[in-house]
Design a protein around this nucleic acid. Structure first.
Length: 445
RNA sequence: CGGGGCGUAGCGCAGCCUGGUAGCGCGACGGUUUUGGGUACCGUAGGUCGUAGGUUCGAAUCCUAUCGCCCCGACCA
């Protein structure tokens, strides 16, 4: 993308309404525009990152054997009357009447609807296990939306629902989700710690939240700091292997890690003092096993091998997709702007032409731009007729992890400059080698 | 939902107390200058002062109502 033809409305000054760093940078980098309290338009740069995150979530869900579908944002109230939640959910649920005075609602989550789909079409243990998920906009009419996309009223969420014939199989689904989530967050450059949580309105007794450590987090967290060193890495996971998956879960949930909701001071004091940490975290996902709460209420049953009819065992599992943008920025920024992890960056590399209009510099930039495209990667080429300082400031603000700087001085010696946004380190290289480095960097992402 | 604050040009703000023809910085546009980390100067455009009503000869300014937004707390992906 040539910046001169892109829509990137960056702001030089901090908008007054933004209090935390991720909100400020998202506004300043021209990623979002607020339309109402907790409701945002996604401008081109923000939309790119949102799509990248969404794509990673999809890939890891499919890898775990889960099946994508798409349910509507608007739902009939009757489904929620069946589960009893139409009355329980309270003011957070946006209730709407259509022209025929029918009660509708903008979905805050989809347990009822997915259960309805399931009961309409599935009746046998032979069809199980099955996990269905979608990535769809949700609306929860928060009393006080804040922190930009971190606590919006409208937000994009991946929510998945597993259906299993018995408790053991459903617990495997729970574990499978935990492992797939670990991989999902790692691909985004995040350390998200599964912490034992309280169940809230979804119900159920087995639940973990995934927390990204950040000083601006809304939850207080208590943990053994050795959990932050755990990495799933590139290990090969067979998601159908119950033992392997369970072992990974054990590895990641044995050390103490809890939110203030489930914190137990006595147990916490058993953690060696040098590892005992109290901090704050941003919740970026949660998994639940709730058994037959919805299937019983809504009559979702399957026939088992021995011919008996049982309510299907379920769980639900969510990832806050739009919130993740905020969480990633909170975890990865400096005083100049955002620092995108390679996995979610809106463009893989920025090209800065220090002297637009200089025939040699222009030609070198064009060649680099084409070379990046030939790698199957995307460059943002700052071809504006701006001063070097302004171009650097923009690149730093929007946070592309790698920048190639091209100017007449370097070209005289046959080199361009490759700079890491994260470390600030630069190396001078011939253009071909800079492209090779970019190719290597993104080879494993 | 309790407490506090703010709505004036695209963004950041001053002016309000003490009523008298709406201002500054950044940005945008045109030019000169400059060119490896937001250069300097000249010029231009842009505002029903959130909205409605009231007081007044006269309201951004005073009064009333209303809408919106932000912050702190209680609640939540």
């Amino acid at each position: 993308m040539r910046l001169s033809r892109y829509f990137l409305p960056v702001l030089k000054e901090n908008p007054a309404e933004a209090q935390i760093v991720s909100h400020r940078y998202m506004l300043r980098a021209g990623m979002i525009k607020q339309q109402a309290a907790g409701i945002y338009s996604w401008l081109p740069l923000g939309y790119r990152v949102l799509k990248r995150i969404e794509q990673i979530v999809h890939e890891e869900q499919v890898r775990a054997g889960h099946i994508p579908l798409l349910m509507p944002t608007l739902q009939p109230a009757d489904l929620w009357r069946e589960s009893g939640r139409y009355d329980d959910y309270g003011q957070e649920m946006l209730r709407i009447k259509d022209r025929h005075e029918r009660d509708m609602l903008y979905g805050p989550t989809n347990e009822e609807m997915i259960t309805d789909i399931f009961r309409s079409h599935v009746g046998s243990y032979k069809d199980l296990p099955m996990t269905l998920y979608h990535i769809q906009w949700k609306f929860r009419d928060e009393v006080r939306p804040r922190f930009g996309v971190m606590r919006g009223r409208e937000f994009l969420m991946k929510d998945g629902y597993n259906f299993d014939v018995d408790r053991e199989s459903a617990l495997h689904a729970y574990n499978r989700h935990m492992v797939s989530y670990l991989r999902t967050y790692e691909r985004m450059g995040l350390t998200a710690i599964p912490m034992r949580a309280a169940s809230g309105p979804i119900g159920g007794d087995n639940t973990h939240e995934f927390l990204v450590l950040a000083s601006t987090g809304e939850s207080e967290v208590f943990y053994d700091d050795r959990v932050t060193a755990l990495k799933l890495g590139a290990r090969d996971i067979d998601y159908d292997n119950w033992d392997q998956v369970a072992k990974v879960c054990e590895e990641f949930t044995t050390l103490y890690a809890r939110t203030d909701e489930t914190h137990d001071e006595a147990v916490f004091n058993g953690v060696p003092e040098e590892h005992r940490k109290v901090g704050r975290g941003i919740e970026v996902g949660q998994i639940f096993y709730f058994g037959t709460k919805y299937s019983e209420a809504m009559g979702a049953t399957v026939v088992t091998k021995d011919g008996s009819k049982v309510p299907v065992e379920m769980g639900s599992h969510g990832i806050g997709v739009s919130r993740l943008l905020g969480a990633i920025i909170e975890a990865s920024h400096d005083d100049k702007g955002i620092i995108w992890p390679e996995g979610v960056t809106p463009f893989h590399v920025g090209i800065v032409n220090l002297k637009q209009g200089d025939a040699e510099a222009d030609a070198a930039c064009e060649a680099l731009y084409k070379s990046v495209a030939a790698l199957g990667l995307e460059a943002l080429y700052d071809d504006r007729d701006e001063r070097a300082g302004g171009k650097f400031a923009t690149m730093d603000l929007i946070g592309l992890p790698w920048r190639i700087t091209v100017g007449p001085r370097g070209l005289k010696n046959g080199v361009v400059e490759l700079t890491s946004r994260r470390t600030g380190e630069s190396v001078e290289l011939p253009p071909e080698q800079a492209i090779e480095r970019i190719a290597q960097i993104y080879a494993g992402i």
